[in-house]
């Protein structure tokens, strides 16, 4: 049994040591931060504030996941070469990658689960209804100002961000049952939704994105979701 699985067993048996609990909290906080960051990447074009924040950040060089490493390297290489027109360049690439200019369903990497899981690549299909039901069960709704559908990748990533934060909160309060339940929800959501369809999205992103920035985002998304899925599976894996 892995170290993390042992920790979760400890959570379940309510015999967690404070140091171990803190380590788990730190790990889940890091996951939340990455989900939040990814959600922002897909939410809309990069603006000056976000670009400044990205430029100042540090990026892990050796995470153990080649896709994550490649993604970070491509993004930070792009950030090392920004110039006066980079914001415009990124906005153009965002549109070309995720919105496109064609009239068929294959002219961009459309960031909606329904497009990738419905037979005719349509919006607002079963996947959207399913994630909508999950958000409602969690007491969440789409921001009224945001006009995309609920199965947009940014919303799904933010849902994971919120679940991670709630897990941290539960662990901090010593509510292990709630933390356990939230971790189960995360694994289920990854299995049924996010991790099931994003490889199709990222494969198309690699086809449409022209900047290292959005190419890197495709690799980072792939690698992080793979790592996170393994992390959650590891927690619940039987000995």
């Amino acid at each position: 049994m892995t170290k993390m699985a042992k920790k979760m067993r400890a959570v379940r048996s309510k015999a967690l040591l404070t140091a171990e609990q803190q380590e788990l909290i730190n790990l889940i906080e890091q996951r939340a931060a990455t989900y939040g960051l990814l959600s922002r990447f897909y939410y809309k074009e990069v603006d000056q504030d976000f670009l400044n924040e990205l430029k100042e950040a540090r990026y892990p060089a050796n995470t153990g996941n080649p896709s994550v490493d490649k993604g970070y390297l491509l993004i930070v290489t792009y950030l090392s070469n920004i110039w006066e027109n980079s914001l415009n360049e990124l906005a153009v690439d965002f549109v070309k990658t995720f919105i496109g200019s064609g009239s068929d369903a294959y002219s961009a990497a459309f960031p909606f689960e329904s497009v990738h899981t419905s037979e005719r690549r349509l919006l607002m299909q079963d996947a959207r209804d399913e994630v909508l039901a999950q958000y409602r069960r969690a007491g969440l709704a789409k921001q009224s100002l945001w006009k995309e559908s609920e199965d947009h990748i940014s919303a799904e990533l933010e849902y994971m961000f919120i679940l991670c934060n709630r897990t941290v909160e539960a662990l901090s309060k010593g509510d292990e049952d709630e933390a356990y339940s939230l971790l189960v929800s995360q694994l289920d959501f990854l299995t049924d939704h996010l991790y099931a369809w994003t490889p199709m999205l990222t494969s198309e992103m690699r086809r449409f994105a022209q900047t290292d920035f959005y190419q890197g985002l495709a690799w980072l998304t792939d690698g992080f979701l793979e790592t996170d899925f393994e992390f959650l599976e590891d927690i619940f894996r039987e000995e």
Binding site: L38, R40, E89, V92, G139, L140, A141, H152
Partner: peptide
Amino acid sequence: LTGLKGEDPLDLLDADDEHESLNDPLL
């Protein structure tokens, strides 16, 4: 980084606001 400074697509539902708040040159 959190990347989510008021730029998040999801919002908390009010307890009595169950379902209705969901209405909502080349290189």
